[in-house]
């Protein structure tokens, strides 16, 4: 399963490309070709384990979630 924050788009608002490129919704930046292998879980990569940005983001989101009442 690919990273849920991975998108393919032509523009980041500043720069426009001829082809869609991998884009990270967490950093709001295009992703390098090597890093895109992790985002896509290619080969033996797993974004949940191998992407520090994903892990930090998930921890932040979980940290912001309201606590259970019980």
């Amino acid at each position: 399963m690919t990273c849920p924050y991975l998108e393919y788009r032509r523009s980041d608002g500043d720069t426009e490309f001829d082809h869609e490129r991998p884009y990270c919704g967490v950093t709001e930046e295009f992703v390098s070709p090597m890093k895109a292998d992790i985002c896509n879980d290619r080969f033996e990569f797993d974004h949940e384990c191998d992407c520090e940005l994903y892990k930090e983001h998930v921890e932040e989101v979980v940290g912001e979630a309201p606590a259970d009442d019980d």
């Binding site: 490309f17 295009f30 390098s32 070709p33 090597m34």
Partner: peptide
């Protein structure tokens, strides 16, 4: 190469 893309320098040829 395999490291950088046009996002790093749009003059880098890819196709």
């Amino acid at each position: 190469g395999g490291v950088h893309g046009k996002d790093a320098n749009p003059n880098l040829p890819e196709q």
